[in-house]
């Protein structure tokens, strides 16, 4: 999915958070860049992280290297969105 801008990536990441973690879309819509994810959202346990990342890969057409997966890129909504946007830019 080359050519997606940061706004589209933001929307996809929100949709995946809602779909995979069963968090209502209205609540995900209130997330801002500083909203905490891993360690802050009880829905996002370590098993759920795998589904979250793989679903983001599928919808954005990117591949996430497991070496890239750490607490920092999952710490906040902004960090995760930036990570995904950088991957999309790298594949375009």
């Amino acid at each position: 999915m080359a050519g997606q801008d940061a706004g589209q990536v933001d929307s996809v990441v929100r949709a995946v958070l809602s779909d995979v973690l069963a968090i209502p879309a209205e609540r995900v819509a209130t997330f801002d860049r500083s909203t905490g994810l891993f360690g802050a959202l009880p829905e996002l346990d370590s098993m759920a992280v795998a589904g979250l990342l793989t679903e983001i890969e599928d919808r954005l057409g990117i591949v996430i290297d497991d070496d890239d997966v750490d607490g920092d890129m999952l710490a906040t909504f902004g960090a995760l969105s930036d990570f995904a946007a950088a991957k999309v830019a790298g594949t375009s």
Partner: peptide, 23 residues
């Protein structure tokens, strides 16, 4: 719907196979 991979059709719904709980 929303999946980036090629398909003959796209159906509406969420990926229940990735959900933390059965749904």
């Amino acid at each position: 719907e929303g999946d980036a991979l090629p398909a003959d059709a796209y159906l509406p719904g969420k990926p229940l196979w990735r959900a933390a709980e059965p749904g």
